[in-house]
Simulated scan of single mutants.
Amino acid sequence: MNILWDFDGTLFDTYKAFTNVLHEVLKGSVPPDEIFLELKKSFTHATAFFQLSEDQIAEFKLKERAISPEKKRPFPFVEDVLKQSNLNVIMTHKPREEVQTILDYFGWNHYFQEIVAGDDGFPRKPDPTAYRYLHDKYKLDLAVGDRVLDIVPAKEIGLHTCLFQNEGEGADFYLDTYEDFYITIKI
């Protein structure tokens, strides 16, 4: 199976770290569980929802980049899926350097044929341009993401879709853990 992966919240459990940083930026004025819910929609959404100033956004980005990859661990069993797949690619809004830092830390570069990162010039999701590019090049079977935003472009170009730890409408498959990935996903 050839799989397109989102990065944050799909391969790596990064939202806990993001939540802690935004909680700090907001000086503890918003409960972490509320921050988490808004961040899961998107960072852009959260900045508008919490009415962050440009200085607060810059502070968040600076502090988030400084977090050790140790605090951005891969989800359990996802490496098993990567090992069994024929091919894996990543499409993320995260800057390439940050993606590479985490992949390098965990020794995971060899699992991915290609990475389309946020600073590669492609339009942001839900625009399907990057998905179409990767699909045309690698003949993908499935797109896995943690937000509906991740599956919209996949649906548009005809890929099967899987939402991870999200029950939003529209996915072909839903998973809370990667432990039974190949049992659950039958394409």
Rank of each mutant, 00 (worst) to 15 (best):
E34P: 03
F49M: 07
D119L: 04
D120E: 01
N20G: 15
V148G: 00
Q113L: 07
K27S: 11
Y174D: 14
L22A: 09
T129M: 09
K61A: 04
F43A: 15
E38C: 14
D6A: 10
K186F: 04
R124D: 12
G145W: 03
I35S: 00
L159G: 15
N166W: 03
L62V: 05
T14L: 03
P128K: 10
F173G: 12
A171C: 12
R132C: 04
L140S: 08
I185G: 09
D120N: 10
L142D: 01
F18Q: 03
A66I: 01
L87Q: 11
S68Q: 04
F112Q: 13
E64A: 15
E179Q: 15
G118Q: 00
R73G: 13
K41W: 00
G145D: 07
F12A: 05
T184H: 13
E59P: 06
P32D: 02
N166T: 11
F106T: 03
D120T: 00
L62F: 05
E70V: 09
E167W: 07
N166M: 04
A154R: 10
F112D: 11
L37N: 14
G168L: 06
F164I: 05
S53Y: 06
E79G: 01
Y111D: 13
G145H: 06
V99I: 08
I57M: 13
E97Q: 08
Y174N: 12
K71E: 13
H160S: 13
K27Q: 14
V148Q: 12
M91V: 14
G107D: 08
V148F: 02
F60D: 05
D104N: 15
Y174F: 15
K40Y: 08
D136Y: 01
S53P: 08
H160I: 01
I3F: 05
Q51P: 05
P128V: 08
G168Q: 07
D55Y: 07
V21F: 03
L87G: 09
I115A: 00
I102F: 03
Y111C: 13
S42Y: 12
V25H: 07
S42F: 11
T177V: 02
I185W: 04
F106P: 02
D146E: 03
K94M: 11
I157S: 04
W5C: 04
F75H: 02
T161L: 01
V89G: 13
K186T: 15
V30E: 00
D176R: 11
K186V: 14
Y174M: 12
L159S: 14
